[in-house]
């Protein structure tokens, strides 16, 4: 089974700590990271770590998962609107599907995303859970 090692390695900063980019010219932040600002076309773009807080914009619960995600079923995938603006697609964790609501405050955590079998790569990355202070 191909484990896509170079791809997962390339994405580690974005996945482990929600690193996107910031345009030094027009001030926009975006996720995932870009080399050229999609707003003003500037190449004056630097890495930017997002704060990890946002709200559930929309969501759906998965009962028939793709390969590699079976152990988490049922799980909720959400569009999370980060406080800084970008919309991020991510799994929700530490919450039962029936407790998820639109506009629910969430915070980012780093968790296991999937594994390539018992002897393969473990992929880690961002998920979101209900924000504690707002609970």
């Amino acid at each position: 089974m191909s484990m896509d090692l170079p791809r997962h390695w390339r994405l580690k900063q974005a996945r482990y700590r929600l690193e996107g980019s910031h345009c030094e010219d027009c001030g926009h932040t975006f996720f995932p990271s870009r080399l050229i600002c999609p707003e003003c076309r500037s190449e004056n773009v630097v890495a930017h770590q997002f704060g990890g807080r946002g709200r559930v914009y929309s969501y759906s619960t998965v009962y028939n998962p793709p390969a590699g995600y079976d152990e988490y079923v049922p799980y909720t995938v959400a569009l999370v609107q980060l406080d800084e603006g970008p919309l991020v697609t991510a799994q929700l964790t530490d919450v039962d599907p029936e407790d998820v609501e639109i506009d629910m405050p969430v915070e980012m955590v780093t968790r296991r995303l999937r594994q390539y079998g018992e002897d393969g790569l473990i992929v880690y990355g961002y998920k979101f859970r209900p924000a504690w202070e707002a609970a």
Partner: peptide, 13 residues
Amino acid sequence: PGPDEDVATMSIE
């Protein structure tokens, strides 16, 4: 631990 937790994820937090 939940199904998406291990020593790496717990250590990170």
